[in-house]
Design a binder for these strands. Structure first.
Lengths: 150, 150
DNA sequence: TTGATTTGATACTAATTTAGTATCAATTAC
DNA sequence: GTAATTGATACTAAATTAGTATCAAATCAA
């Protein structure tokens, strides 16, 4: 039962990397190479982040992308939501036909509690927090580069 | 972001139905019809539940399936685990190559906390509890049949 | 003992989602 | 002008999920 897909995973890695040097612009190419993310795939992910205002971009030679929101205000929840839609345990209440019997679905009650919990938790973790954690780990290891692997 | 797939969903519905009449045997056919679950699909799901000892079966005319474990001891967690494997947020630590850098994966720390929480919560909810909830809803509605829709 | 009904085992197909690739236009720095 | 870059979008491939089909073995009842 996997929760994060590659889109979210790569997006978070990209945001962490960009967030560690918020002032500087980097090309998708360089980012792709440094993080081991397939270039064209990363490009599409970045474009999505740009559309959502989390990343800014500049075209042309010496162009590239940079983080445009405060990392402390970019929540993992938002990133997941962009690429995987809102947290939902099963599909009954959103997709296809709407549940004909929503109010009385037993499983729904228990399960939405958990759904809500997951959502809340992802809503508490920011990219800034992840960066802080990463810095702490790096410091403990004497400044070596730590590869990100969610 | 869907958490339950159809296997788990149907398996839970089947277990709830069987658990409501723990003494009686019912054929997969009848169960399929009463719950609106595709017959052959349900059969495979039942066989899996049988292999895991949650359901018993008898071949032949007047055969069928019945619940074989105490509904209060069948946890949603176990059912999900059977059909979707253990809860895991992203794939890095299990599949493909093992993460080369597990100990230092930042995302991993935050994310495993949430993973653990989900797992714990699913481990607290039993099929028996769901049945009790369902009965409560039915009673409140004056005994009408309530269709299960997780 | 034969035929209908049922599970056991397993192979197969179809649909959907996820992951990844490719292409070309527009922009920009030099 | 040219190289490097993003914008937009179409396409392909792989993996997962959902669903179907088939036939053998067991059981019951007439």
């Amino acid at each position: 039962m996997k929760i994060l897909n590659k889109h979210s995973d790569y997006a978070l890695r990209a945001l962490i990397t960009l967030g560690m040097n918020p002032a500087s612009r980097i090309s998708a190419k360089a980012l792709s190479e440094s993080q081991g993310i397939p270039y064209q795939f990363l490009r599409r992910i970045l474009q999505e982040l740009i559309r959502h205002g989390l990343v800014s971009s500049k075209q042309g030679a010496a162009g590239g992308v940079a983080i445009s929101a405060d990392p402390d205000r970019i929540m993992v929840r938002e990133v997941i939501s962009i690429f995987q839609g809102p947290v939902q345990i099963s599909e009954c209440m959103f997709r296809r036909q709407l549940c004909s019997n929503r109010a009385n679905c037993v499983l729904r009650h228990e399960i939405m509690r958990i759904e809500q919990m997951v959502d809340d938790e992802f809503g508490k973790v920011s990219v800034g927090k992840l960066i802080a954690d990463l810095r702490r780990v790096e410091a403990a290891r004497g400044g070596q580069q730590v590869q990100q692997q969610p």
